[in-house]
Design a protein around this nucleic acid. Structure first.
Lengths: 195, 195
DNA sequence: ATCCGTCTATTGAATGTTCATTCGGTTTTG
DNA sequence: CAAAACCGAATGAACATTCAATAGACGGAT
């Protein structure tokens, strides 16, 4: 069993991260004591401190972990051979679906980015996550698909609409079908496209 | 000094609310002990409990308080005699400006709505705040200004874009001029208008 | 194959701190 | 003078973090 040594470790660390995610969604940053995280993850309280320096660190890492899972989900559905509009639709819908399918992640991220934690977080890391999307938007502007506009601003408009749609789907009974998502993506597209 | 009895009381209560707002923006829900709130508000810890049953209640009331201030700010700029598009622009820009001018409120509200507090909050109250906007949107659809679409969804799209723009303005150095706001409102309008 | 020593992973009770809330008393108001 | 507003030290619970002790894994020596 030499080879799953790492896997075992990763499993336990992952269990801690996932438990934290779920508990924070349910009870918020406050209201989720380390003791509960430990219990839910099936480890002792002390074990958490083997993997994370502190509660703050745990939460910071949880944010990074969630970001990666979101990016992976988006990339999975995108193909190089699609035209620009199709790639935009794919990106927007993937993002929205990820939020819908991972409500714990959604609420955690939202709490995180609006909390003082985010200020303690490195800017560089955030830049890295943003870069790809910004470039995609910039190329859209250059090639006259999109109206000329600050790419960061446009990026935020795209993000927030996906986020909002997902929240609405989750909060109320307003079930969004695949067709609804298409319509929404269309709406956002109409807002940012050239002409 | 008979007449400002209420005013005095209100002043102290208001001081508590405002202090809480500021501290939560800076330190989050956790990280703002009642003792600090008291200190910043210039009252004793016990006094807070004269006005609010508990910390939870304080935060709930703070949310309501903030909602009212936002609504007032929006109504102030809107006139009955404007045409539909102008009223939409006014609403969107007022909302965005309120967020920009009241960052404490913005971050508090965002933290609140993504926290478990909101679930303990009465649905009815939220409905009441929403009703006016929903009606405005419904009338827009009926009169063929807006594309037919679930008004709640459309409302969220409008909200989130204003919110997002304000966040961007506050977070980065990307200063949004009045012209930028106009352009953004235009962009949202293009997304929701008929045709 | 068996033992040994070392390193890592894990445990959970103990520690010390922080904080929400209480309450008996004081001041202010009408 | 009675009621309301206000004070702030005291209380007790909750919590993050520590640490001494245990268990397990691995490599190398026999």
């Amino acid at each position: 069993m030499a080879r799953n040594e790492m896997a075992m470790m990763a499993e336990k660390k992952k269990a801690i991260l996932e438990s934290t995610l779920k508990l924070i969604k349910e009870n918020g940053f406050h209201g989720t004591p380390m003791s509960q995280v430990a219990k839910k993850a099936g480890v002792a309280a002390g074990t958490i401190y083997h993997y994370f320096d502190s509660k703050d660190t745990l939460i910071q890492e949880l944010y990074t972990y969630t970001q990666y899972r979101l990016l992976d989900a988006i990339k999975e559905n995108s193909r190089e051979d699609m035209d620009y509009k199709a790639r935009f639709f794919s990106h927007w819908i993937s993002r929205c679906m990820f939020y819908i399918q991972n409500p714990n992640s959604l609420f955690f991220m939202e709490q995180f980015v609006n909390s003082p934690y985010v200020q303690r977080c490195s800017k560089e890391q955030d830049e890295r996550f943003q870069k790809e999307v910004i470039q995609f938007i910039e190329s859209g502007i250059e090639n006259n698909y999109l109206r000329p506009m600050n790419p960061r601003l446009m990026r935020m408009m795209i993000y927030s609409s996906a986020l909002t749609a997902a929240k609405l789907h989750l909060s109320e009974q307003l079930t969004l079908s695949q067709a609804d998502l298409q319509q929404l993506a269309q709406m956002v597209w109409d807002g940012i496209k050239k002409d």
